[in-house]
Structures are given as structure tokens and as C-alpha cells.
């Protein structure tokens, strides 16, 4: 339980997807003009991360990594399929996004209307693919169990959500300020994100995972 909370807090604040790794910047800058839509996208990303990362973890543990196929038969123990991981991960993500879209449309139409156009866009959001790749890289040294992976997925999603809602709120207020003309829009958003990242850097150096 302690480990779960440590990884959860670490992935929200210290290893924040946006401020430490710049993942998902494209949609972060494109969909952060109002808090309401930013909120919708944040929920969608968290939701999809929470499903795709554990599924990719299971695939990595039982199919892709070296010697993972031992459970099927002893003779398959020497096979290393890790070079296939990019293509498998992206296929899983595209497939899950599609399934999630159908399920949400059928069973939660209100949520579907809120998420609307964002769900299909998530398939090519770097944060989703990035989380799966980081999971693959860290599994074994930092993350040891399924609950660690769940904590990482949930924490990364919430960290991303926090970041996009934060910048959207600042951009809404920025409409009333006198920004130099060439900086308006994109330029100033980059700089504000940089300043927010400096603020988040105060969490750096705190080590929660042993």
C-alpha cells in the first residue's frame, strides 16, 4: 500500500508527463483554450491510460519480453519478441481507444457527449504511448507488481490532467493581459508552460521509491 501511494505521488508531481517529459504536448497546447474542454480531455486521457498501461504490462510480461513465453511451453523460453513492442503497443492503444469509445457511447451517453471528439484523438497522444514505453523501461527496477503499474498509470493520467487544467485556466485569464503581438497564442503558452515546469521542479530530488 505504501508503495502504491509513493508511486502515485511520484508520477503526479515529480515525473509529471508534461513538465518533466513533455509528453502529450500537441493536444496540451491545442485543447487548452478553455477549462471546460481541457477538463474533458484530462478525464479521457486518465481513463485511457488506466486501461492501456496495465494491458500493455500484461502483454509485455507474458508475451513480448525475453523468456516471457515460458508459461506456454518450456521450448519457447528462449524467444525474445521485444523488438515487436512498438507495433504491439500502438495496435493495443488504437484498439482500446476504439472499444472504449463504443462502450462509453452505449453505456454512458452523457460522458460520451462530454468527451466527444477527444476520444479518437487520444490514440495518437504521445502521453499514452509514452506511458507504455516508460512502463516497459522501468518494470523490474522500479515497478514490481501489478498494483505498482496501476499506481503509475493513474498518477500519470492525473498529473497530465492537472497540467492541462492549470494552463487552460491561465490562458483564460491571459486574454485580458497585454501580451506582445508576436508572442500571442502559441509563444506565450510555451513560456508559461516553462514557468509552470520551473514551479514543479521544486518537487525534484524527492525520492519516494526505494
Amino acid at each position: 500500500m505504501e508503495n502504491f501511494i509513493n508511486i502515485f505521488v511520484q508520477s503526479i508531481f515529480i515525473d509529471n508527463m508534461i513538465f518533466a517529459y513533455f509528453l502529450g504536448m500537441c493536444s496540451y497546447l491545442a485543447v487548452s483554450k478553455s477549462v471546460k474542454t481541457a477538463n474533458g480531455l484530462g478525464i479521457a486521457v486518465t481513463f485511457v491510460l488506466l486501461i492501456t498501461v496495465p494491458v500493455n504490462y500484461l502483454l509485455n510480461q507474458y508475451v513480448l519480453s525475453e523468456g516471457a513465453l515460458k508459461w506456454a511451453s518450456q521450448s519457447l523460453g528462449g524467444i525474445d519478441l521485444s523488438f515487436l513492442s512498438f507495433i504491439v503497443f500502438i495496435a493495443v492503444i488504437a484498439w482500446i481507444v476504439q472499444v472504449v469509445e463504443m462502450v462509453v457511447e452505449k453505456f454512458a451517453p452523457a460522458l460520451y457527449n462530454q468527451l466527444g471528439i477527444f476520444l479518437p484523438l487520444i490514440a495518437v497522444n504521445c502521453a499514452i504511448m509514452g506511458a507504455s514505453l516508460f512502463m516497459q523501461q522501468r518494470v523490474g527496477d522500479e515497478y514490481h507488481s501489478f498494483s505498482d503499474i496501476l499506481a503509475f498509470a493513474l498518477g500519470s493520467g492525473i498529473g497530465w490532467w492537472l497540467a492541462i487544467v492549470g494552463i487552460a485556466a491561465i490562458r483564460e485569464k491571459m486574454k485580458y493581459s497585454n501580451v506582445p503581438k508576436p508572442l500571442r497564442g502559441l509563444g506565450i503558452s510555451f513560456m508559461i508552460t516553462g514557468l509552470m515546469a520551473i514551479a514543479f521542479m521544486s518537487f525534484m530530488g524527492i525520492k519516494l521509491i526505494n
Binding site: K181, F190, G194
Partner: peptide, 17 residues
Amino acid sequence: LPPMALIIVGCIIWVHR
């Protein structure tokens, strides 16, 4: 550190525009 990358891109956009 990561934040400066963002600020440098911001400056490039500033000059470009």
C-alpha cells in the same frame, strides 16, 4: 533542465513571428 527547452522554443516563435 526541461523548462528552458520550452522557453527557448517560445523565443524562437517570438523571433519567427
